[in-house]
Simulated assay, not measured.
Amino acid sequence: MPKLLFSKIRFSDIKDLFPNVQRPRRIDIVLNRRRRNCNIWSSGQKLNDEACPSNLSWKTDHKLDLSLEKWLKDKRYRAAFRSFLESEFSEENIDFWLACEDFRSASDDLKWRAEKIYEEFVKPTACREINVDHSVREKIQESLEKPSHCCFDEAQKHVYLLMLRDSCPRFLHSDAYLSLKRKSRTHWYI
């Protein structure tokens, strides 16, 4: 029998060669632990498939959430993320999110600002229409009579989750992000 490099081959790849050998006990323990952890997360959170189209695990979503927060706060990362979204024809998401942040911090003429955001991003015939549900659009339209600082919160959260689950994973593999990350690493040595 030829010698095999077992560190590079999984047991499932060679199990046909050894019909009487069973899987080692240690691997069973590790796999059961992983299954238990997955079951804890899936039973602890009742997720709807429509609300969470991504099949990412909680840990991955959490890491992406921290990354997206970092990108939206830092000017360089925000500019790189926005240019990436432009290349995917979805820059209206980040522009809407930033407009909502400005709206939330504004203190004067809320009605005018709310109508401007509605006309540009939320209205069904808007030139830069965002992807939100019809019910959310109706709630925003009703709140335009007496706008408050939180009238766009539901739509903003929806757009944030859309960027988090859809755009962020692709941005992590884009050339724009990789070059920016490389520049930030070499910045310390200059």
Rank of each mutant, 00 (worst) to 15 (best):
I130D: 06
S12Y: 12
A80E: 02
Y77K: 07
V30D: 04
S42E: 07
R25A: 08
R33V: 06
Q156R: 12
L47S: 13
Q156M: 10
W112S: 07
D153F: 02
A51G: 05
R26M: 01
A106I: 03
L98I: 15
R33I: 08
R104G: 01
L31G: 00
K139G: 05
N93L: 11
K123H: 06
S107L: 01
K146W: 15
K3R: 08
R78S: 14
N93I: 06
E69T: 11
C168S: 02
K139F: 01
L98E: 09
A99H: 07
K3D: 06
A79N: 12
K8M: 09
F11V: 12
F96S: 07
L64H: 10
Y177W: 08
Q156L: 11
R26F: 07
L5V: 06
I14K: 05
K46Y: 11
S87N: 11
N20M: 09
H158E: 15
L64T: 02
E120V: 01
D65R: 10
D175K: 12
F89W: 11
M1F: 04
K75N: 13
V132H: 07
F6N: 03
E129H: 00
L98M: 14
R182V: 02
L172M: 09
A114Q: 01
Y189F: 09
F18N: 03
L110M: 07
T125Y: 08
S57P: 03
D108M: 08
I29K: 10
P124G: 03
E115D: 02
V132E: 03
A106F: 03
C168D: 00
F81N: 05
S174W: 08
Y177A: 11
K183G: 05
L110D: 00
D16H: 13
R165C: 03
L5G: 08
D61A: 04
A79Y: 08
D95S: 14
A155P: 10
D153P: 00
S179E: 09
K123W: 01
D49I: 14
N20T: 13
S67E: 03
K116C: 01
S167M: 02
L68H: 00
L4K: 10
R34Y: 05
L31T: 14
R137F: 02
C168W: 04
E145K: 15
K63P: 05
N39E: 11
I130V: 11
K181A: 07
F11L: 15
V21T: 13
P169D: 06
D13G: 00
L144Q: 11
N131W: 01
